[in-house]
Simulated assay, not measured.
Amino acid sequence: MEKGYYDTPRRCSLTELAGELDVSKSTLSVVLHRAKGNGDNGVLRRIRLTSRV
């Protein structure tokens, strides 16, 4: 993701990303876990676009 959540080392924490998206940390964690497990790049792409706002 553009914010660097999946970079090593991470450039953005789950807490920071959740704050930018105005969702709880636990909600974002579940969404990212499910999207990654399902190989759903569409969800990750939408999150990336939303986080630019």
Rank of each mutant, 00 (worst) to 15 (best):
R34H: 05
D22G: 09
T15C: 01
T27C: 09
L44R: 15
Y6H: 09
R10H: 06
S51E: 14
P9V: 04
L14V: 11
L21A: 11
S26K: 03
L44W: 12
T50F: 08
R11V: 01
L49G: 10
P9I: 05
D40R: 14
V53D: 15
L49Q: 14
E16S: 01
A18H: 07
R11E: 13
L21K: 02
S29P: 02
K3W: 08
V43R: 05
M1I: 05
G19S: 11
L14I: 12
S51W: 08
L28I: 00
L32T: 05
V43C: 07
V53N: 15
G39Y: 13
L17E: 07
S26T: 13
K25N: 08
G19V: 01
R48G: 10
K3S: 01
V23A: 04
Y5T: 01
L49D: 14
V30E: 06
M1G: 10
H33W: 00
G4M: 08
V30T: 13
R46F: 07
I47G: 12
L44H: 14
L49C: 08
S51D: 10
R11K: 15
V23K: 08
S13E: 00
V53M: 12
V30G: 03
T50C: 08
E16A: 09
N38A: 12
K36H: 08
E16M: 00
L49N: 14
V30N: 04
R52F: 01
L21R: 00
G37D: 09
R10D: 05
D22V: 09
C12R: 05
R10S: 13
S24L: 10
R45S: 12
N41H: 14
S13T: 11
R52W: 05
I47L: 15
V53F: 09
N38D: 13
A18K: 06
Y5N: 03
S24I: 06
K3L: 06
R48P: 01
V43L: 02
L14G: 06
R10W: 04
T15S: 09
R10C: 04
S29T: 07
M1H: 07
G39C: 13
R11C: 02
T27F: 15
N41V: 12
G37M: 07
E2N: 09
T27G: 03
V31I: 14
K25A: 06
T15F: 00
V43S: 04
T50I: 13
M1W: 04
N38Y: 10
R10Y: 05
Y6R: 12
G39R: 10
G19H: 07
V23M: 10
G42N: 15
E16D: 08
A18W: 10
G37L: 08
Y5K: 00
G4D: 02
D40G: 02
R45G: 08
D40T: 04
L14P: 00
K36G: 03
L28N: 03
C12G: 00
S29R: 07
L21W: 07
T50L: 13
T27V: 11
V31Q: 11
L21S: 10
D40I: 01
T15V: 11
G19P: 01
R34F: 02
G37I: 03
L49V: 12
K3V: 10
G39M: 13
R45D: 13
S51P: 04
S51F: 05
R45A: 11
A35E: 09
R34Y: 02
L32F: 03
N41C: 10
L49R: 15
R52Y: 06
Y6V: 07
